[in-house]
Nucleic acid binder design. Structure first.
Lengths: 228, 228
DNA sequence: CGGTGGAATCTGGCATGCCAGATACCTGTT
DNA sequence: AACAGGTATCTGGCATGCCAGATTCCACCG
């Protein structure tokens, strides 16, 4: 046998137009600051299909999927609108998030190995220093990654899938969330306690800490974020 | 002003074909025993469109929605298949259900009025007698209604929506779940304890009881139900 | 000047037809 | 009889065009 194996190229798996349009639109909507006052929230089927250079059929299928997912709303004979979530809906999402992430923490205390838990340190320890004020943006990203990491450690694919959908919407209002330095500090403290509970395999405590931490965010949004 | 107001009939809001096809297919698939060995799991776009008397376009949109929802799987140039959930997926669903229902119980201890909690009694007390053996079928229905009632009392629409999607799949394997009389008895005992905790406004206990009760079902399915 | 009627236009819903990938079947060769 | 090659056929993806509900705008009338 030759030492040089045939390098098969990953066969250009021709993804359907629908799937590509869907991904493109989803990213565009997600990255758009829809809570800005001058945001254009109306979409036009024909205009978009021309912009993408395709017909309306696959575009419509992509839009229908976004509609079901709650990112846009298709109103018959009226138009297609990017949805702004109401405050109540955002709060509900955070509640679901709390329920699922705390369950993930519970599962992680039982099913994750020590090496796996170690990745959490990397996402928190870099912010132990007092340069946090200058790095609020980075912290915001690391914050989300920390929570996603806990969910991943629960090793329940369905929970990962559901929360991924929630993060999209919650991220959208993150820009409106005023991250006071004080809050960030307390957040880091919370995170360290959570890691400690996970490593100690203290199931009940890990669940409780995660739940309370997320519900704290819920309260914060409820009191200090103004939507609608 | 006249004391007799004009009684406007709710204008027959013509629902789109897509929506009607979707509902029809969903019900058909849900009610079908897809875990039977001789179940026909393949669908044909053209055949269905003829059977419904419509064109393929709205049918395709309905199928795409069912695909996203996980009820069917569309494979390009191969066919459309009704999906059988794997055992692992069913277990994951029950896990998510446990997380969300226990959160609902937590919320219910804080946000539900006493009169609202009272409805739970009706769903359980009728099975206190010892004629349960003959009424396993009814019990199975009342069981699901009990859990849905708790979720409703949590008053979080998003949780209701997510769990409604889960129930569809979990119900499908209910037929394969052997409800031994013993299990049903213990289930009723659990339910009564849950009601008591809710009425006592004991948040932590209510959450724990609901979670443990549902995870008990998870263990039962894991050990005694054979899929795949 | 205000209000009404209607026509032009905009928008999503749906039907129809063609296309390419994939499969199944059939035929001819060895 | 076994296999290779090609062809008919099946299936979902996509383009195109028409339709009806809804809106907008303007002319006409009181």
């Amino acid at each position: 046998m030759s030492g040089v194996s045939l390098r098969i190229n990953p066969i250009e798996e021709s993804v359907s137009l629908k799937a590509r349009i869907y991904a493109s639109l989803k990213q565009a909507i997600t990255e758009m600051n829809i809570y800005s006052n001058d945001a254009e929230l109306r979409l036009d089927e024909r205009e978009l299909s021309q912009k993408f250079g395709i017909s309306r059929t696959p575009l419509r299928e992509a839009l229908a999927q976004l509609d079901q997912e709650g990112l846009v709303r298709i109103v018959p004979r009226r138009g297609i609108y990017i949805v702004r979530k109401t405050k109540a809906e955002i709060l509900d999402m955070i509640t679901v998030w709390a329920a699922l992430e705390s369950m993930s923490a519970r599962l992680a205390t039982k099913g994750a190995r020590d090496e796996e838990l170690a990745v959490l340190h990397e996402l928190v320890d870099q912010f132990s220093h007092d340069d946090m004020a200058r790095r609020m943006g980075e912290y915001s990203d690391a914050n989300i990654k920390f929570h996603q990491a806990i969910i991943a450690l629960g090793k329940c694919p369905l929970i990962e899938e559901i929360t991924k959908g929630l993060f999209i919407h919650v991220r959208a209002i993150r820009q409106r969330t005023i991250f006071e330095q004080d809050r960030a500090h307390r957040s880091v403290v919370d995170h360290k306690e959570i890691i400690a509970a996970l490593e100690a395999r203290d199931t009940e405590r890990a669940e409780r800490l995660v739940r309370e931490h997320t519900l704290k965010l819920r309260d914060h949004v409820e009191r200090h974020v103004d939507l609608d």
